[in-house]
Amino acid sequence: MSEAAGRQPHFVAPLDQTPLEAVDRLDEAAPPTSLWAEAWHKLRRQPLFIVSAILVVFIAVVVAFPQWFSSISPMVQDGENCRLANSLAGPTSGHIFGYDKQGCDVFAQVVYGARPSFLVGVLTVAFTLIVGGALGAIAGYYGRWLDALVSRVSEIFYAVPLVLAAIVLLSGFRAQGGVGVFGVVLVLGAFGWPQMARITRGAVLAVRSADFVTAATALGVSRGRILIRHVLPNAAAAMIVTATVSLGTYIVAEATLSFLGVGLPRTLHSWGMQIGDAKNWLAQAPEVLFYPAAALAVTVLAFIMLGDAVRDALDPKVRG
């Protein structure tokens, strides 16, 4: 030991180089930030988020006020909009996307086609959030037989593929000219909620065993109140991310149904239907298919990217 001491003497760093700070100092100057504020702070600097958010806002505006973008409404069936003489004609001034087989303005169709697609997506997600979210939360939080029941029922719905179930259900209404936006939302929601229920259940289960829930119980906070005030807000991040990403999936599902001719009625001119019509003239006029397809892809992409960005910002593992 003495030898060791000899070759490695007692060293003390000069105090001016290693100033001592108070134990556990609190930086009072920093502005307070909640988790959401912190996530927002991170999001604002992320190009992925900025691009996708601008896109989503833009699409929402198109959906709300299509007349701002196109003076021609394809909803009005008169000779003004569609002239067979223009069939598959290329772009002209004022009709930058050209014309489809019926000689209708493609740009106007693409602009007006945004509304049904967007509405189906948003409403279906709202449906799954309410139904799936509630059932998942109840199953995860109360557990026992409620959990078993909800899990089995959701497995049953999960076992039937979404688009397949929708085709079977909706095909019966073809004779009546389709079911409209709410019909499609109901059908997609009926088979889409199990996914949201699973995610919510998992998130609630994780939060339920957290110490702050136990602490709230020990404070005398009631079970229901804990679920609403503590558990759900903490599970919300996972639900929001799932909702944003699945919004894109539902828009694609609606397009697929319309494409197959079992979705929205023809009068709504949804993107899926436009693509379905244009596929027949792909060889002659591929751009007629391209525009609605691109609009659809950009919309879906915007939501998926938004979901990705939000996930990264909220992910506790990434969070410093």
Partner: peptide, 28 residues
């Protein structure tokens, strides 16, 4: 037998263990 005390990324004191425990020199 030998201790190295680190604080905020720096070595503030090092030396034989018992020596450091008995006569700690740095305030940390």
């Amino acid at each position: 037998e030998h201790l190295v005390v680190m604080y905020q990324g720096k070595v503030v004191e090092s030396g034989p263990s018992l020596d450091i425990l008995a006569n700690p020199a740095h305030p940390y």
